[in-house]
Amino acid sequence: MNSAATAASEWYRPTSLADALAIRASARGAVVAIAGCTDLMVGWNAGSRRLPSVLDLSALPELGAIEVGPDAVTIGAAVCCARIAAHPAIAGRLPMLASSARQTGSIAIQNRATLGGNIMNASPAADNPPVLLAFGARVTLASVRGSRTLDYAAFHTGYKRTLAEPDELLVSVTVPYPAPGASSHYRKVGTRRAQAISKVALAALIETTDRAEDGTRRVRDARFGFASAGPVPLTAPSLSAALRDSPLPAIDRLLVERALASDLSPIDDIRSTAAYRRQVAVNLVMAALAEASQVP
């Protein structure tokens, strides 16, 4: 059905990061970096025969490792979702990330789709970014000029725009472990139960104080990540601020509604409506808070 004659101008498959960065630098943005191809190749099919030059990141050892550290896990940008979902340390310490990786498309997609691609494709509906936002992840970018590490929360600057420069590659994502006893809650609301794009998704990480004598506890710190609730994967700074020191479980729904009204900017599109996204986002937060209040 589609062209069999697709031919990229050049096909680069470096086996070291240094080589990859050199190609990236010399091409000045004229090469497309590819990894799992699960988003990118959808465009190839419908488009022209003449593809841009390709920089294949799949053979770079520097991008292919999962390193378990004392405070964080560092995941190479070209690690696929299936490996993340199956990794024991991630399942044990960062279960939300195992969960989002397991809900990224079908198994055939998870076997190919990479964490880096999920970030760099910069879709507001991407499945793993909400979790990375809630965990306070950092991203490491590299170029021939050197490397830098940024808070992921600042990375997406607008629809399909990021802080990455044209000569940079995303190398890894570092996800710190949450504080002991923190409650984490991930829920993807997709168009169906599997193999779906999210209509709205929430990742929440809620730290609470110890239970007071009257049995109540307070929110010490709450961080959120949302998908499909605005032009980029979003945190919810107003909500996080509003919840600080609030007592659980008696959190006022109106407070959450008001905060999210300023944090989120969902739209009507072919998958859902702004009204639904807004309402369900509030419901998901309330459910996450209810769950946090029940942590022993």
């Binding site: 699960t38 190749m41 055939a108 076997n111 190919r112």
Partner: peptide, 9 residues
């Protein structure tokens, strides 16, 4: 491992 061959160069 299962993959979709339409998305594999």
């Amino acid at each position: 491992e299962v993959v979709n061959s339409c998305l594999v160069p």
